[in-house]
């Protein structure tokens, strides 16, 4: 195992056994099933996820909304929210390919929401934020010990909202309202319409829309999650799952024992861990080069390197 996949105790290909849940989930429904199970078992008493305008309309007290007027919030714009039930989890399932500042709710979760055991899902960089907050809780009083389950999702890059708008409405020629699902896989950006249309865009097109902050990111598979998951490496409808920490190990074991997931050994599935490793390496190599280039960006002037 190379450093590009981080530390982990086990890796497996898995899928939720809950057929209803799978209808809402992005891939194998790992994130939503884990949280639903953890809520049931009292492992967490609430989870921070990326919800939508519809959810916010129904549960105004469970979200933080930015300064936009509520009716200005567009389709597919994620709204960080705290959920307490399976139904609420399902309402927030699925990937939104633009920024959802989930960590912004992390402190409030222990305050106005009264959570003692928080579940949080996030991209690798958000997992880094969570762990930094636990080790160096400079502005995060009484938060660290309340984090009961942090689930990381693989991430190659993310987009500002307006990028998604341009990609879908200009390049894919579809209205955002009519999109059912978006996905990045098999080297393409896929847009599925509610009426059955499918558009695929080459990733070459998407690159210029990526969030610049992603270009210094050195983590693909959420090395710092308790458990991390993504579609890459596993067959369609299945997910690759890394179980990383003690907490992750214990929650995963309990969920398995309760029959929450069906699994296949990673060695047996196609395309398998090899692809995950390959993509992780690609990302890290590319972004290390970016960091290198930043050193000589100006004339005798460097751009900042955040890593020490």
């Amino acid at each position: 195992m190379g450093a590009e996949l981080g530390k982990y105790k086990s890796v497996i290909s898995a899928r939720s056994t809950d057929k209803e849940l799978l209808k809402h989930a992005q891939d194998g429904g790992i994130v939503s099933s884990l949280f639903a199970f953890a809520l049931d078992e009292g492992i967490i008493d609430g989870a921070i996820v990326a919800a939508s305008k519809e959810f916010a309309a129904k549960n105004p007290s469970k979200v933080i909304i930015d300064s936009s007027n509520f009716d200005m919030i567009e389709p597919w714009r994620p709204i960080p929210a705290i959920v307490n039930t399976k139904a609420e989890l399902l309402a927030a399932a699925g990937t939104k390919y633009n920024i959802s500042p989930n960590v912004a709710l992390l402190k409030e979760a222990t305050r106005a929401f009264g959570l003692d055991k928080i579940g949080i899902v996030g991209t690798p960089c958000q997992m880094q934020a969570v762990r930094k907050a636990q080790l160096y809780p400079i502005g995060m009083r009484d938060v660290g010990a309340s984090i009961a389950l942090a689930v990381g999702i693989f991430c190659m890059e993310n987009f500002p909202y307006q990028s998604i708008l341009q990609l879908v409405e200009d390049h894919a020629a579809m209205k955002l309202e009519s999109v059912k699902k978006m996905e990045i896989g098999k080297g393409k950006f896929w847009v599925y319409g509610k009426r059955g249309q499918v558009v695929q865009l080459p990733l070459k097109v998407t690159h210029k829309y990526e969030q610049p902050g992603c270009h210094v990111c050195l983590d693909y598979v959420a090395n710092l999650g308790d458990i991390s998951t993504g579609s890459v490496g596993s067959p369609d409808g299945w997910s690759t799952v890394f179980v990383r920490s003690k907490i992750g190990d214990s929650v995963w074991a309990k969920a398995m024992a309760a029959g929450v997931f069906e699994t296949q050994p990673m060695e047996k599935v196609k395309p398998g861990l090899e692809l995950v490793t390959k993509l992780a390496n690609e990302k890290i190599t590319k972004n290390k080069a970016t960091l290198e280039a930043r050193k000589t960006f100006g004339v005798g002037k460097a751009l900042r390197n955040p890593y020490i």
Binding site: A104, G139, M140
Partner: peptide
Amino acid sequence: MGCGTCAAA
């Protein structure tokens, strides 16, 4: 990269 940590802190 928009994690939101600063807003929480």
